[in-house]
Design a protein around this nucleic acid. Structure first.
Lengths: 380, 380
DNA sequence: GTGAAAGCGCTAACAC
DNA sequence: GTGTTAGCGCTTTCAC
């Protein structure tokens, strides 16, 4: 008999005068006599019945939940990923579990291992760094995993992945700065011992070399990915640049930064010194976060496709999950998202900067031009 | 017997040569003979056993999951809430489900009702607006709910809630602007038909009145909570202000904005017109999001405690959940978070602004002073 | 088309 | 202490 708790199939069955099997069938639309359908639906409505999803999961072997794990949701890059992932999982009837690892490796591994607790049908993971332990954990994952980031160039990667092409991205930005007349281009990079740090530096060097410009080590610096660090780094570079101007070809005329936070920090340093952006120094960042529009002048940035990576990761994950119901398992895929330069006022050519400034009075320079217009610039 | 699937208590029991009950006891630390403990733990380790959390939930009646539902994670205010909530739920052994309602009322109601599916042990809800349907749904919620926002001032509110005091918050900002010498203070507000919109306007009016300043309707405007809307709104106000300057006491010397996005937009308009911040026009926003430090000069803003509201909401929810194991149900609580003014360079006094500008060359004006210093200013 | 019954994996009485 | 057993709420054979 039915107790005082929330209604269950049994409660409905009693009320409708049928068996619990019929209740289940009607509720899942598996066909029944019209009369039965009517009585069950009536009872369910009257009792305000809501199926117990946990019991369903246990029986069905699927939780209808997906997990997204990243360092810290405070980073705008992850915010755009979450938005995409959330939208897609929701559209497919999955709930989204959010997990912040706070950049603790052990926590990342724990997330992968906890896939075995059947709480989640799959995982999108943004690791800070891929260690051998990661690879082992991924290989033994109890549920499908998609990694956002760069897996080692292995013959057989353990899981699907989506990566940004930050080498090309950095090249795009630096070429753009050169093409618009800049010659002494500083580079404020993040930590050197990370994959993004290395790749963005490679892109910077490559673009300079391709355009026949020497790369001056005094113009490159590494620091943390924060606004404050960017400000401090640029003050330092400017001090040194001024001090050594006797030997060098003159003051720097552009700053390329490894992400938008650094670029904003750099812009602050320039403002504080009374240097004009872009008339005196052009500035460009990476990631094309919402900060680009918060900055004045609006910040040129390279969109490394954080939203798109989120979307692709979610889709890959859902593919794997539906695939599993099928037969064979396809080999792991690796997708690379094409970067896109978004030009805004912070990198307008120096010669036309003043004219542009006047024009801004009427039309604030929020209009962005993408690399589509100058796609041919991208050679690689 | 055991099939090829993932290991279960039964698999372990067979391997350890004990009953499944003993396995369960050992795994939950309920005491057993040392020998039994050893054998079970050994078997579990060897098999890489991970308990099925879904089965546990079904048996235990708790999912160990909590839900946070808000409009859109893209809004920085929600990001700081999520961070806090995530940290607290994690510390208490709960997973966090994220739900974006996209400001669709029907979706918000669905979230509340879906608490009956036992997928989540509780909900923190940030509704865009509280309708009678909301109240009804909240009253019948199958699990504890905490609302972040203003419930109607009812004798018995349906659930716990945490609210910001944006009336006082707006007053703080406007009083600060007045105290630092501003007299014609414009107000760029969000939509007028929302609770925040109404309250911020009340605070603005109250501060002006208290200081004996007339409030000029021509200085107040309503628009959307976006950067672009802020830019457009301020251009409009400036145009009108200039046009009617014959009758008015002169051009506006400060802008108070109902959130940081609007304030950044307003700052863009000022920059585009060549007006200096804060020398010509002071700017202040609300919410104290990360955008305040992205702006140049750094933006004065009122911290309405989004992080703290998130923290309190999560704690209230956990209280309710543990309480339920106890006896009686305490009446619904309502907490109000005290706003805090964070003064940055965008609102430095006009007279000293130029001197301050020079000082910034050495020390970028990132140092913030909180209302703690001038707390007595808050009279209400 | 419908009902009886098994079983998803686990925990907790209950007897021994 | 330990094993047997019931049962959380649901879906799905399997007979009828």
């Amino acid at each position: 008999m039915t107790t005082g708790g929330p209604p269950t199939v049994e409660t409905i069955a009693e009320r409708a005068g049928v068996s619990i099997a019929s209740v289940s069938r009607v509720l899942n639309g598996h066909g029944a006599r019209p009369d039965t359908v009517r009585r069950v639906e009536r009872a369910a409505t009257e009792l305000g019945y809501v199926p117990n999803a946990v019991a369903r999961s246990l029986k069905g072997g699927r939780s209808l939940q997906l997990t997204f794990a990243m360092q810290d949701i405070g980073n705008p890059v992850y915010v755009s990923m979450v938005r995409q992932i959330q939208a897609i999982t929701k559209a497919h009837g999955y709930r989204l579990l959010l997990h912040s690892t706070d950049a603790v490796v052990e926590d990342e591994l724990a997330v992968v291992r906890s896939l075995a607790d059947r709480t989640s049908d799959g995982l999108v993971l943004c690791p800070i760094r891929i260690t051998p332990e990661h690879l082992e954990a991924l290989r033994g994952a109890a549920q499908p995993v998609v990694v956002i980031g760069s897996l080692p160039d292995d013959a057989e990667p353990p899981v699907d992945s989506v990566r940004a092409d930050s080498v090309t991205g950095a090249e795009l930005a630096v070429r753009h700065l050169i093409r618009t007349g800049r010659r002494r281009i500083a580079f404020v990079n993040g930590p050197a011992d990370t994959v993004p740090g290395r790749n963005r530096y490679r892109g910077y060097r490559a673009a300079l070399a391709d355009c026949g410009l020497a790369s001056d080590p005094a113009l490159v610096t590494n620091t943390d990915f924060t606004i404050e660090a960017g400000t401090e780094a640029l003050h330092r570079l400017l001090d040194e640049d001024r001090a050594g101007s006797g030997s060098g070809p003159g003051r720097l005329d552009a700053v390329f930064c490894a992400n938008d936070q650094l670029a904003l920090g750099a812009a602050h340093a320039l403002h504080a010194r009374g240097l004009r952006i872009p008339a005196d120094v052009a500035v460009a960042g990476m990631d094309d976060t919402s900060l680009t529009r918060a900055s004045w002048p609006p910040l040129t940035s390279v969109d490394l496709g954080s939203a798109e990576r989120g979307r692709i990761a979610a889709e890959m994950l859902l593919d794997r999950i539906t695939e599993r119901d099928g037969t064979s398992r396809a080999p792991a895929r690796t997708e690379t998202v094409t970067p896109r330069l978004v030009v805004r006022a912070s990198s307008a050519p120096a010669e036309t900067a003043n004219a542009a400034q006047d024009a801004q009075d009427a039309h604030p320079p929020n209009t962005a031009h993408t690399a589509a217009e100058n796609g041919q610039e991208v050679t690689r």
